[in-house]
Amino acid sequence: MKFLQILVDGFAISSLYGVGAIGFTLIFGVSGVLNLSHGSIMVAAAIGAWAMAGDLGFGAVGGAAGGVAVGVALALITYTLVVRPIQTSSRIAREEKEIFVLTGTLLWGIMVQEALAYLFTSNPKTVRPLIAGVVDIFGVRTPTQEILTALISWAAIGLLWLLVNRTKAGKVLLAASINPRGLTLLGFELPTIYFWVWALYGLLAGVAGVLLGSFLGVSSDNVGQLTASAFSIVVLGGLGSVTGSLIGAYVVGYLETITAYSGAPSIRTVPVLLLLVLVVYIRPQGLMGRR
């Protein structure tokens, strides 16, 4: 019984972590950027959905769509306003770009977080569920929303897989992550590719944010935690590897769920952190890392 419960609950949360993390890893794979404003984009999407579904009267579906749109818009703003200028700046030495992008996105994330707290208070918000109610799965009473979370997560992951493996645009994307210089020789504009990668990332982060908002609820206070957890999952799976991030997401999701169910909900994240340190020591490139 408890086993089934862990199986069901862990699956939903892991799928959700997966969607959040693959966007994060995608950007790193393609453009070498660790986006520390990740959590704030997720939370902004969720709060956007909450506001549109509630006060603005767009309804549950309209709100969810609006939330995802907020995610995409914010990701593109992050890229154009913060990441791109740092990458192209002639004042910043090449070997220092990394720390500047990190600091820049971190500051940007704080700005978004503070703006959200200012406009909507730091009180947690929950996005109106698309379908309310519960379903019985082998005796485990599961909220419909939880099933929907897992389904939508996997639909998003599946679409991404199709895009990368079955379309021309996807192949370009893949090529960009392996050999950006070669791609420019073929006549592709890297900035254009980056722009679309960030849009794709925004879509994934937006979906993850809205789902999180309707499944568990979010507050602007969760921003740091969300960024840290995406970062951990991605390092665990191997920076830049989408498959690795998915595996990482399930490892983290289930490890947390098991810890929480074995009677210690307050140390939920501790085993994950220990595992992370262990993996980084033994295999710094992560489970599926290629460098």
Binding site: S232, L273, V277, V280, Y281
Partner: peptide, 28 residues
């Protein structure tokens, strides 16, 4: 100890984890 083994983002992550562990420990 990890700093002498790891590079860039990996060491960065370990330091981040160190903070989170300390925080968890204090709260626990």
């Amino acid at each position: 100890v990890p700093a002498l083994r790891l590079k860039g983002p990996y060491f960065g992550l370990v330091t981040l984890v160190a903070v989170l562990m300390l925080q968890n420990f204090i709260v626990l």
